[in-house]
Amino acid sequence: MNRIQREKFRDRNMRQKYDLLHIKSTLNTPALSGLYLKNFYNAAKRYDLTLPSEIVDSDLKFCGNCGVVHVPLYNTDISSTIEGTKEMFKMVCKKCQYEAIFENPRIESAKVVRSKSNSPTLTATLTPKSTVTPSLTSNKINKNKAKDRAKKRKNNSLNNLLANKKKEQNNGSSSSLSSLTLESFMKK
């Protein structure tokens, strides 16, 4: 097999394994899904493929215990509780009763106290131009800052400092040159 054939084979192989994982849930044989999942992961490892975190993360797409694909309403129940500043998502696999709990920071409730003067501006933000411009301006400000910082950094580098000194010495008239003489040195 040459390189292209090998890649094609790999793609087909992985795709088939991935499809099988999804078909498994429809075939009513949950006992096998763990096996297929492991097979898929092993193949990914063998081919040196980095899978996205949505697939690899434990308990997220596949049940951490039996390996079945999570499908809400069919084999998974999802519920959420709020505890203080955190949201807890609970996914319960109906096949093996395995519970996976995810913690998330809660979305901040930005309950705005609306005053009458405030309302027109709210509607104005809807137009595409106004939504685009603030982001653009903020970008510009950031860019300028970055540029300034880069300039400063350049100026501070050793090479530039030396160059500046040389320039000064060249421009700095005879006084600096004369300073090299013993007399001027003594005067100082």
Binding site: E54, K61, H70, V71, P72, L73, F89, F102, N104
Partner: peptide, 18 residues
């Protein structure tokens, strides 16, 4: 970015399974 991704991943499945 604030919306929990765990929940987001399941929503399309949820709506099509309903």
């Amino acid at each position: 970015p604030d919306v929990p991704s765990v929940m987001l991943q399941q929503i399309p499945l949820l709506t099509s399974m309903s």
